[in-house]
Simulated scan of single mutants.
Amino acid sequence: MSTLRQLTTQEHDLVLWMLEHGNPEAIGFLPQLEQALVTPWQCLCGCASFNLAVPGMPDHKGGMHILADFLFGDPEELSGVFVYEQTGVLSGLEVYGLAGEAPKTLPSIASLRPFVDAASQA
């Protein structure tokens, strides 16, 4: 039976950077990050996404609220990554593909750039 585990250094540092550079309310979730644990859930597609649980906080339910959203990769392999919360609890990191399959590894912090809505560039 799988159990909760500590975040790897890469997971922690990525979520930390994203919260520090995300939406204005994202910074308020930093204390939760220091307590967060990774759940045993794995996405069926095999991507690098992971869910979080924060000891002492209620189980997260309901819709996702994105705290930080970034793009990475070349146009041919464009992908995105976002950190989200549910009902006030830091809940996970989602990696997704825009030009193909979702990446199976986490992006480096250096590769991240802000997600810009295409409609705002028109």
Rank of each mutant, 00 (worst) to 15 (best):
V15E: 10
G97F: 02
G28A: 12
F29M: 11
V15N: 05
V83H: 02
H12Y: 15
Q6H: 12
L93E: 15
A119E: 06
G56D: 00
P114R: 15
Q32Y: 05
S2F: 03
G28P: 07
G100V: 08
S111D: 13
L78Y: 04
A53C: 05
L37S: 11
M57N: 04
E25Y: 00
H60K: 10
H65G: 03
A53P: 00
I27K: 10
L67Y: 02
A68E: 01
T3L: 15
D59I: 05
G62F: 00
D13C: 07
A110W: 00
V38N: 01
S120P: 06
T8C: 15
L67I: 02
A26P: 10
E34W: 01
P103T: 04
R113L: 00
D59Y: 03
N51A: 06
A53V: 07
G22S: 07
L37M: 12
A122W: 05
A36H: 08
G62M: 09
S120T: 01
S108G: 13
L33R: 11
E94I: 02
L16M: 15
P40M: 10
L33N: 07
V15F: 04
G80L: 01
E85R: 09
L98Y: 08
S79D: 10
P55W: 04
Q32N: 04
L78H: 10
G92N: 11
R5I: 09
M1V: 10
A118I: 12
T87H: 03
H60A: 13
C45S: 07
V81T: 05
R5Q: 13
T9Y: 08
W17D: 14
F50R: 02
F82Y: 04
A110K: 12
E25K: 12
V89T: 03
E20L: 13
C43Q: 03
F115K: 15
M1T: 11
S120V: 06
V89A: 14
E101A: 08
A102H: 09
C43W: 03
F29C: 07
K104E: 08
L37H: 00
H60N: 04
W17F: 14
S111N: 08
G73H: 12
C47F: 08
F72L: 06
L33W: 01
P40W: 04
Q6T: 07
A36D: 11
I66V: 09
L44E: 12
P55Y: 04
V89Q: 14
Q6Y: 12
I66G: 02
F29T: 05
I109Y: 09
D59Q: 06
V89P: 08
P114D: 14
Y96K: 00
I109R: 14
P103K: 09
G92E: 04
D69S: 07
H60S: 06
T9G: 13
N23M: 04
L71S: 05
E34S: 03
L7K: 14
L4V: 11
F72E: 09
P75K: 02
S79M: 10
